[in-house]
């Protein structure tokens, strides 16, 4: 599903944000991506949805080498991936419904289908009662749930979340991760970047650890079997 083959990313000379990363995430898996601030977590995620281009190496998403996707066709890759940001990236002057509907509207779906899909996403994150609220009028935890609902509304194959609990307290963070678990149970591949080790311990999932751009921990097959 997601494959990195000798991937490097360099922003400035003589310093690598990502250094020779090799990893493979199969379809339907749940991974935590961890490491200290500046370890390269966000860069690695950005490489997946082609917000950044690798300096060297190949990245395969759903068997497609994304280096070869031209700018004009980038939307095809983005439609396979649901992205959740730490700062939510919601349109604050629009309603919860309108925000969640965006990925469906841009695909040109009919109103009835959009209504159905938004309703499903809202149910999954437990926000049906906030449907018509302006997003700036709801709490941070609810905003993050709206962001998750938006990410899953378009039926993506992969969900990527960059520090989705970074701005939330522990209780809300657990709630949010449980939502990701539910999404994963529906067969969606989930990759969550977090530096919160307590959360990682609480949810026994496979973990990729980065340190200064290097892959320091990546579960071997035996370890993966032990987890399950």
């Amino acid at each position: 599903m997601i494959g990195f083959y000798h991937v490097y990313k360099q922003y400035i000379k003589d310093s690598y944000a990502i250094y020779d990363i090799n990893l493979s995430i199969e379809s339907g898996e749940f991974y935590f991506l961890t490491g200290a601030s500046g370890a390269g977590k966000t860069t690695l995620l950005k490489l997946i949805y082609k917000e950044e281009l690798p300096t060297k190496g190949q990245i395969l998403i759903d068997s497609v080498n994304i280096n070869l996707i031209p700018r004009k066709k980038l939307y095809r890759l983005r439609r396979k991936i649901g992205i959740v940001f730490q700062d939510f990236k919601l349109l604050n002057n629009r309603t919860v419904y309108e925000n969640i509907a965006i990925p469906l509207v841009v695909r040109g779906y009919r109103k009835s289908y959009i209504d159905k899909m938004v309703k499903n996403s809202l149910s999954l994150v437990g926000l049906n009662h906030r449907k018509n609220y302006i997003t700036s009028h709801i709490s941070g935890g609810e905003q993050q749930r709206v962001a998750i609902a938006r990410a899953i509304a378009g039926n993506p194959k992969i969900i990527i979340a960059d520090e989705p609990t970074g701005n939330l307290d522990t209780e809300l963070s657990i709630e949010i991760l449980k939502i990701f678990e539910k999404i994963n149970n529906n067969g969606v591949t989930v990759l969550i970047a977090t530096h919160d080790n307590n959360l990682i311990k609480m949810f026994t999932k496979k973990t990729i650890e980065l340190k200064q751009g290097n892959l320091v921990s990546y579960p071997s097959m035996e370890e993966q079997q032990w987890i399950y």
Partner: peptide, 16 residues
Amino acid sequence: KEEIDILQFVGATDWY
């Protein structure tokens, strides 16, 4: 710009 970024992240075409 923020709105455009969001549209790009959710898979809107350039033309859209």
